[in-house]
């Protein structure tokens, strides 16, 4: 055990009780019951904003330890990041419940409404309703980058590119992967890109770099970067920021029709990593 090491972002196998109960099929009683997290589960059809995770669980109600498999499926066009959930389930008193999180991916064009996730073991079956919510409005005054596809030159193992378009600008949440951190210490440039849903007129970008009480922007924030937009397949620099010490920087520029926006980072105030908590893009 290493107490100094940061926790990896992993899906815990939690031992807990959860809501909802299994509806057993006709037949002999099963020793493994299925359950799922509180419903409805709400998801959004954006590449970087999935909405709720579904927590699924198996409970051994029998007298013997078992290795159990749950199969998972969902109505098209939704997709699950786990099609099987298998685990050792010890027989204990009280009964042991083992659970895991499942991410539900909805494509942008998924019709809002209710969909079914089917969970089954050899003897039990459970249907979990999933609600696909309408897409957030992307009109004038809305953040056009919210939940859109984010990619980066590199990403540190404890972070995901989606973190900087997840709508969370709170620096205090930095350790929960709510931002993007590049993966190459001391090497620049780094780049972080958000691809808009469609070519859109934009004239303002709000960049939030790391600026918490513990990690102030003067010590850890982004220092030098170019802001670029992709128009007809070519990148144009619309703003250059140098020597920045602030947590929140607004770039305004003449309105352009952009397919994507990217930040090309040349240095940070600790000269080690590029860190973006949130990148917002606006029409005006």
């Amino acid at each position: 055990m290493n107490r100094r090491k940061a926790a990896l972002a992993l899906i815990p196998v939690a031992v807990l009780g959860v809501a909802a109960s299994a509806a057993a099929r006709p037949g002999p009683p099963s020793d493994v019951e299925i359950s799922a997290s509180e419903q409805p589960v709400e998801v959004i059809g954006l590449p970087c904003l999935h909405g709720d995770s579904l927590e699924v669980a198996m409970t051994n109600t029998g007298a013997d330890d078992v290795y159990a498999d749950m199969e998972l499926s969902v109505q098209s066009p939704l997709r699950l990041d786990r099609r099987v959930f298998s685990s050792w389930l010890p027989a204990r008193d009280p009964d042991t419940t083992v659970s895991t999180d499942v991410t539900i991916h909805a494509p942008r064009d998924a019709e809002p409404g209710s969909y079914d996730v089917q969970l089954s073991t050899d003897r039990s079956r459970l249907t979990v309703p999933v609600e696909v919510l309408p897409l957030p409005p992307k009109g004038p005054g809305d953040d056009l980058a919210l939940g859109e596809r984010a990619t980066a030159s590199t990403t540190h193992g404890n972070f995901v590119p989606c973190g900087a378009v997840d709508g969370n600008t709170d620096d205090a949440d930095w350790n929960t992967a709510t931002g993007w951190n590049d993966g190459t210490r001391g090497a620049f440039p780094d780049s972080y890109r958000v691809t808009l849903a469609e070519p859109t007129s934009i004239s303002r970008v709000e960049l939030h770099t790391l600026d918490s009480q513990r990690f102030p922007a003067t010590g850890y924030g982004l220092r030098d970067w170019d802001l670029q937009v992709l128009t007809d397949g070519a990148w144009t620099t619309v703003d250059q920021v140098r020597g920045n010490v602030n947590g929140h920087v607004t770039s305004t520029f003449a309105t352009v029709t952009a397919e994507a926006v990217r930040v090309v980072s040349h240095d940070s105030n600790d000269h080690s990593y590029s860190r973006i908590v949130e990148l917002e893009v606006y029409a005006d």
């Binding site: 055990m1 939690a14 031992v15």
Partner: peptide, 27 residues
């Protein structure tokens, strides 16, 4: 898991929980 030791996980997960993970890994 990195640097586990007996029933003790790297990041001090509850032992019950870690032993289920260990059982999965061993299987």
């Amino acid at each position: 898991e990195n640097n586990w030791a007996g029933p003790i996980s790297e990041n001090n997960a509850p032992e019950d929980e870690f032993l289920i993970r260990r059982a999965n890994a061993f299987r």
